[in-house]
Amino acid sequence: MFPQPPTKHQNDHNLPDVLRGTVFAAIPQRDHVALDFTTHAGSHLELHIPRSLFDALCARLGNAYKAGCWVAARCGEVDTLSRQSMERYVNMMTCDKLGLERGSNRVLRITVSSITAPEPSAKD
């Protein structure tokens, strides 16, 4: 029995258009992947994930679909917070998932470049 080569689904960074009723799209770029989706609370997010970081999440979680869902779920956990708080949270969770040192200047960062969310509050 010979090992099967990976299927297109396992290597493909294109995510489905719909994720449980939420618009969800991935736009592969040369150096990053852009995730564009709306959370269940109604916040529209556009995240930019460095390609190497997204590839590491894909390897850790199994494929691009799972990596995209994982990032979307982390954002959904804090979608009522400010953009800065969301960025800090998703980057902290990504570091933990990949076993990277939190706050290191060498770690690539996920950024939220476009968002419809509440303004920062005193509790952030």
Rank of each mutant, 00 (worst) to 15 (best):
A67W: 04
H40K: 15
H48L: 14
F54D: 07
V112I: 15
F24M: 07
D12L: 08
S114T: 13
S113Q: 13
N63E: 04
D79S: 12
H13G: 14
Y89P: 11
D36I: 06
L53D: 05
P6K: 07
E101I: 13
F37Q: 11
L61A: 03
N105M: 05
L98N: 10
A64K: 03
T22Y: 06
A64I: 05
M93L: 06
R51Q: 12
R20E: 07
P6I: 01
V18D: 05
P3H: 10
L108C: 01
S85G: 02
A34I: 13
T80S: 12
D79K: 14
A67Q: 05
A25D: 12
Q84I: 14
V71I: 15
L108S: 15
V107A: 10
V33H: 01
L35I: 08
C69H: 12
W70V: 00
D12C: 14
G68M: 10
L61Q: 05
H44C: 00
P16S: 07
V78R: 06
A64F: 05
T80F: 00
V18G: 04
R51M: 03
C95F: 10
C95E: 12
K8N: 02
C95T: 13
M86D: 06
V23F: 00
T38I: 08
R102A: 02
C58T: 13
R74C: 04
A41V: 00
R60I: 04
G76N: 01
A56G: 06
L57E: 03
S82N: 02
C58F: 03
G42T: 02
